[in-house]
Design a protein around this nucleic acid. Structure first.
Lengths: 111, 111
DNA sequence: ACTTAAGAGTCCAATTTAAGGCTATTATAG
DNA sequence: CTATAATAGCCTTAAATTGGACTCTTAAGT
């Protein structure tokens, strides 16, 4: 499954479907989930269609006991030791484009 | 890092921080990201504080080339072969609580 | 086959995020 | 040190999600 070949909305549907699969795997109804999370039934339905806020996703995953998955969703520390070394002692708290490279040119494209 | 020991808002802040780390790793500014994703600068700022919609997260991760992580976020096929076998031929499309077990009792608690 | 609850879909009001703009602070290049 | 781009914060309006209630269809238990 190549996510980069999918549209955003297709990805959102896919994610919603996966949350639904997790819920069904535990044989829990949308209503149960909504009561346990203190969210509305509509929020649960919308989430399973990919329409939700991050906060809703977190609450539902916690209730489903799948919170660890978030650690894979957005990697915790994604800086490789090599790259880390390049940054000598300088803490880089802000992005910076050197003034001569203003004619932007992607400096690192994973895709 | 035990996510279950954290509050929802703490988790949201953590996630926002990770997206920010990804962005800085590629040395891209919030403004650049907002232009590339066609989102507003405010949307990017809010996301980095954990306040965003799922759709915003997907768009930003795509631009940062970190979309693959979503495949690990929620496992694609999360039903174990063993459990799958238990469900004989019956497709289970809806959650169902047998009427005698209405006095609910968690049937599978990962935590 | 019958019954019932799960879930989809819709509507309205309330809450929250997104868009756009503007100011203040400060990291970082020079 | 100086200049400036990056970023945080706040404001207002527009758009989207959430809450709550309702109807209709249909999966699944009996």
């Amino acid at each position: 499954m190549n996510l980069y070949a999918m549209t955003d909305s297709a990805i959102l549907l896919e994610l919603g479907g996966r949350v639904k699969a997790l819920r069904l795997r535990k044989n829990r109804s949308q209503k149960e989930l909504s009561e346990a999370t203190l969210l509305s039934l509509n929020a649960i339905k919308s989430l399973e269609q990919g329409k939700a806020k991050l906060t809703t996703v977190v609450a539902v995953l916690r209730e489903l006991g799948a919170l660890e998955e978030i650690n894979h969703f957005i990697p915790e520390i994604s800086i490789s030791p090599i790259e880390l070394a390049k940054r000598q002692g300088k803490r880089r708290l802000r992005a910076r484009i050197s003034r001569e490279n203003i004619n932007k040119k992607d400096n690192e494209n994973g895709h």
